[in-house]
C-alpha cells in the first residue's frame, strides 16, 4: 500500500507527513524546502502503509527538477491514495493541481490546510460544497497544531480498508 502526499510548494505537506508518520523532517516557511521525496510509514490494521512526501509542485507538467520528481512519484509506481494538501488561503491556484490529479481517477482526499489563517483573513470555504464540486472528501486542517489530523487519519484508514475489500472481490 502506498499513500502519496502531493500539493503546491509551501502548503504544509511535510508537516502533514510528520504528523502522520512521526518522522522528523526539515520544515520551513519557503517554497522548495523538500526537493527530494521523503518516505515513511503508518500502521493500519497491523500492516505497514508507505507514505511518501513529494516535493511541492504547481502542475503535473514539471518545470524544474523538484517538480519532475513529484510527477515521477505519481506516475511510476501504483498509488493507493493521493492526499492532496491544499493551502486554504490560495484555493483557486491550488485547485489547478487538484483538478489535474483528479483526472488520474485514483482514490483521493483533499486536505484543506492552514484553514486557521484563511479564517483570520476573512476567507470562508464551504467544505461540503467543495466536496460535492470535486467529488472527493475534503478535510479542513491546521497541520502545525494537529487540528484535523485525527480525522484525516480515520479517513485514510476507511479508504484503504475499502480498497482492500474491492481488491479481494
Amino acid at each position: 500500500m502506498r499513500i502519496l502526499l502531493m500539493g503546491n510548494p509551501n502548503v504544509g505537506k511535510s508537516v502533514v507527513f510528520n504528523r502522520l508518520t512521526g518522522i522528523k523532517v526539515i520544515i520551513s516557511n519557503y517554497p522548495g524546502t523538500t526537493v527530494e521525496f521523503l518516505e515513511g510509514s503508518m500502521i493500519i490494521d497491523n500492516k505497514k502503509v508507505k507514505i511518501i512526501d513529494a516535493p511541492g509542485t504547481y502542475s503535473l507538467i514539471p518545470s524544474d527538477r523538484a517538480e519532475e520528481a513529484a510527477a515521477h512519484l505519481l506516475m511510476r509506481e501504483p498509488t493507493d491514495l493521493v492526499i492532496n494538501v491544499v493551502d486554504a488561503t490560495n484555493l483557486e491556484r491550488n485547485l489547478y493541481l487538484t483538478l489535474q490529479l483528479k483526472e488520474l481517477t485514483l482514490p483521493m482526499v483533499l486536505d484543506l490546510n492552514m484553514i486557521d489563517v484563511a479564517r483570520e483573513r476573512g476567507i470562508e470555504i464551504d467544505t461540503p460544497d467543495l466536496e460535492q464540486a470535486l467529488g472527493i472528501p475534503v478535510i479542513p486542517s491546521v497541520a502545525v497544531s494537529g487540528e484535523g489530523i485525527k480525522k484525516l487519519r480515520e479517513l485514510i484508514v476507511k479508504i484503504l480498508r475499502g480498497n482492500r475489500i474491492e481488491n479481494r472481490v
Partner: peptide
Amino acid sequence: ARFGQAGAITSRVQKVHHRHPT
C-alpha cells in the same frame, strides 16, 4: 481551461470578507 474550472469551483465555494491588513 483548467484555471477556468478552478476559478468556477472557487467562486462557488468561497466567500471573502473584507478586512484591514494586519
